[in-house]
Amino acid sequence: MKIFPLLLLSVLITSGCATHQSPTGRGQTLLFSTQEMSTLGESSFAQIKQQEKVSQDKAVNAYVKCVADRVTDALPDQSLPWEVVVFESEQVNAFALPGGHIGVYTGLLDVATDSDQLATVIGHEIAHVLANHSNEQVSRAQMTGAGMQLADIALGAGGIADKELYMAALGLGVQVGYILPYGRSQESEADIIGVELMAKAGFDPAASVELWQNMSKAGGEQGPELLSTHPSHGQRIAQLQQMQAKAQPLYLLSKSSVKNICQRPK
């Protein structure tokens, strides 16, 4: 019975797999199409909205959406509408999924103390989607022993086998109890892309350093959920400081054109 999963995997690799380059030039092996990843993202987001408490606070929702909209408006591709949902939870966390879905937990707002810091997190999470990191993770799950449990996947038919494992591959381990973490190269790449994106949206990239300093102080030794699989605080902060020379000019060019100032609720 082990022959079928191996055969399916070989078909996926030969028919759907392609070698790509990430935005920073890193090689990627991707087994799934953009449409398949969008289907997975949509299904996973719908499940999370059923499991988690959606915030009804109008001021908080307006604030988070304002920041997220400015960041997504800075994307070169404007064809995708982005859904933004705030979840009522003490978790210091946020995520973005393929297909245009952003989730922010209210606990994050206690650590990201202004709109620039919140834009740092949202930009970082969107960067994971832009760089196909989710596709990399799901592809890795498919190619490893974990993926062999999912030989009956039916993405093309609109169904997804073992959604929890694939949600974990999307970085949603906090919700489902376990996680297939992004690698450090993916995290560093998301920092690079995210900081440039927030700068182009008129948010001060210097706040990225302040945000991760706040993160390093939050939650004791373990830190918040958002840092559970990320590089060390010092390594990340040092990289962000080095990136300011490139990001600050982008911010200075864009900030004068910002029309929608996002006010954090008191």
Results as ranks from 00 to 15, higher is better:
Thr72Phe: 00
Lys259Ile: 07
Glu136Met: 10
Ala141Gln: 12
Asn214Lys: 13
Gly219Thr: 09
Val86Phe: 04
Gln137Phe: 05
Phe203Arg: 05
Ser257Asp: 14
His133Thr: 00
Glu90Val: 12
Leu97Phe: 09
Gly219Asn: 09
Gln142Asp: 00
Leu118Asn: 02
Ala207Cys: 10
Asp116Pro: 06
Asp204Ala: 05
Phe4Pro: 05
Ser208Thr: 14
Ser22Gly: 09
Ser15Val: 13
Gln91Arg: 15
Ser256Gln: 13
Ser15Ile: 08
Met143Leu: 13
Gly100Cys: 08
Ala94Glu: 11
Ala112Asp: 01
Ala207Glu: 12
Ile192His: 15
Lys53Tyr: 08
Leu197Tyr: 00
Asp110Arg: 13
Ile193Arg: 04
His101Trp: 14
Gln242Arg: 11
Ala190Tyr: 03
Ser228Tyr: 01
Ala127Gln: 03
Ala146Leu: 15
Val258Ala: 04
Thr229Lys: 03
Asp204Met: 07
Gly159Glu: 04
Met198His: 04
Ser256Cys: 00
Ser115Glu: 14
Gly223Phe: 02
Val64Glu: 01
Val138Leu: 11
Ser134Gln: 13
Gln213Glu: 15
Gly147Ser: 05
Val195Arg: 14
Ser185Cys: 04
Ile102Leu: 09
Pro23Cys: 06
Pro231Tyr: 07
Thr144Trp: 08
Glu189Arg: 05
Thr24Cys: 02
Tyr105Met: 09
Glu210Phe: 01
Asp69Trp: 02
Asn260Phe: 06
Leu8Met: 13
Gly220Met: 06
Val121Arg: 06
Tyr63Leu: 04
Gly41Ile: 06
